[in-house]
Design a protein around this nucleic acid. Structure first.
Lengths: 345, 345
DNA sequence: GCTTTTTACTAAACTGGTTTCGTTTTTCCC
DNA sequence: GGGAAAAACGAAACCAGTTTAGTAAAAAGC
């Protein structure tokens, strides 16, 4: 079949152990011998069998990524593709591969967990915190298995990376206030999600500080249809002058609702969102958004995970700053080019 | 450490071999014994070590996915996220995991190939055909390693899944002709890519049939800046009445160019594209597009791969039909709701 | 009732590496 | 030049399963 370490050893007239040492760059091999073995490896294009390596060394050189996704829309969000790209590339730079699981249901999560983790297929795990089963998380913690959450969990205190949800929402709200808006409503995702809670908090902090009603928050699911329904309700019952859409997954529903009611943005309603998208500059009007550094988030997650895997020191959390990109949907006269907002005091 | 097959064997007072047979549902185990062992496995939550299993059985229960991506924009395309979701879910349904590699460069492809394939980390491979190194493809073929390409390759005749690029482009072009357009230009991606060639062919077939100039094709790279530059050139030098953008990666550049020249769509220029996007209905104007069944494409790729892996019969290629979604960018009076185009004759 | 076949199971070889331990050889130092 | 320390290597155990060959017991056949 394939060429094995034994073949190399035989040809080099050394033992398997010596070849193994060369492969792993371990000491205890003479310069001459090392060179001879490396040459053979090169010539025969030998590549160690990964399973055998994992079995013997107890390291798989794989990291697992479990991405929960609910709505069908999540695929058109740039969030997880960008995250995944970042994770894969960063992992590859350390000679690690990525084992991917998407999970639609609690059951998916459980089976992904069983197959990936207990089978020792991965050395560490990156999980989208939001909907990952708590039972499994608890078990991970208990076993002291290295894992990093993307996004903060409400129930578990553990290593995680996240963007500054509170600060981003606060600053965006302050920006709306600075434009003169007094009736501002936030359309948020499911209340149980930590990211939603943070964004709501940022919103409410800013509203309270401006002595405005912090109670103007409507929670909805991440289904486009629900987002649309909720928006219709908001706009009919108690229309605000500005609507803060707290997640990318809600945007399509909101746009659909606005279209149905023939509401002019930004004239009749200012619209801002959390999470940017390459298409936002081209929507009509272009959309003001809180831009998350998703790619950096993915890199940070991998860095943190590698630190944990290597038992190295690392901060328990890393919060990345966000940026506010002002476009047409929040101002009367849309400029052609987006302007980053100067940092609020 | 973890519980092993030996532990189960000891507790059940049988040999490892018997437990192994139970795990794999192999015959040669009495009903009583089988039940006893299954109960123990359940109770102790035993999960076989994947590396050991792979090593002994020569099957990894992983499939590899290598997705080449050039421009940074590819992340906002729904194409590969959707594909990946489909692949992962379909694979999971057969108890397979997905090992992911993204490849930016020829070198990436090579290292991904080495680590994934030669290390026997995967039992089969799905590759984005377009930019996968030809050298590696040839080696795969030579070794009779099961793999499926997503998208047709020009150089290799092998198993692949694809969408009907020729037919989609032809029908879209026919549609433009039916609207009365006579000067139609196609903005296509890099000429070497098979998908680009197919779309150009479909375009040219329709143009020739309508006795129009089939030479109105401009090739450009998938970089947004290049797409913009090419579009500006087209619109300045020999402006068509309709522009057929042949790939999602080009759309942003085209929109930017149109905006800069203050060209009114669809009044001054009809715009249609290949590959749909959830945001297209909300752009101004909404955009007419050829919609590809990406999710089905991913499923089909996995099905084909499993057939190859199991040495089962399967067609050498599967071409999925596309759909044309008519929206505002191609007609004077944009309707509120998109209309699927009746199949052309 | 005895042979033949089938079934249930064990023991051991095997997958392809890593790692430990011990031995030989070389280098270092006075 | 002789003893101690260090370096280079081999042999064998080990990782956790699968698979094969062989055996004992049970079932089937006549």
């Amino acid at each position: 079949m394939s060429i094995t370490i034994q073949d190399i050893a035989d040809l080099a007239k050394v033992s398997k152990g010596t070849v193994s040492r060369v492969i792993n760059g371990a000491p205890g091999v003479g310069a001459e011998t090392r060179k001879r073995i490396l040459k053979l490896i090169e010539e025969l294009d030998y590549q160690p069998n990964a399973s055998a390596q994992s079995l013997a060394s107890r390291r798989s050189y794989n990291i697992g990524v479990i991405i929960p996704h609910t709505g069908s829309y999540s695929m058109s969000t740039t969030y997880w593709p960008a995250l995944l790209t970042a994770i894969t590339e960063k992992a590859a730079s350390q000679d690690y591969n990525v084992l991917l699981s998407t999970a639609r249901s609690e059951q998916d999560v459980d089976s992904a967990y069983r197959s990936i983790l207990k089978g020792k297929r991965v050395d560490g795990l990156i999980v989208g915190a939001e909907q990952f089963g708590e039972k499994q998380l608890a078990e991970l913690l208990l076993k002291d298995f290295p894992f990093v959450m993307v996004g903060k969990s409400t129930t578990f205190s553990h290593y995680y990376v996240d963007v500054d949800n509170v600060g981003g929402a606060r600053r965006m709200t302050e920006y709306l206030v600075s434009l003169g808006h007094r009736k501002i409503t936030m359309l948020a995702g499911p209340e149980i999600l930590p990211s939603v809670q943070s964004r709501v908090r940022g919103f409410q902090e800013a509203m309270t500080k401006a002595q405005l009603d912090p109670g103007r928050v409507v929670y909805t699911s991440y289904q486009t249809a629900d987002a649309e329904k909720s928006t219709l309700q908001i706009l009919k019952e108690d229309p605000p002058t500005a609507l803060f859409v707290a997640a990318a997954d809600l945007v399509l529903g909101v746009l659909e609702a606005a279209r149905k009611l023939k509401i002019k943005i930004p004239d009749q309603l200012a619209l801002v969102t959390f999470d940017d998208h390459p298409f936002y500059p081209y929507l009509s009007p272009s959309i003001t958004a809180v831009k998350q550094p998703i790619y950096e988030l993915g890199r940070a997650a991998v860095e943190m995970l590698f630190a944990l895997m290597g038992k190295k020191e690392t901060a328990k959390q890393k919060i990345l700053p966000v940026e506010i990109i002002v476009r047409g949907s929040s101002q009367p006269d849309p400029p052609l080019v987006a302007q980053p907002l100067p940092t609020s005091g």
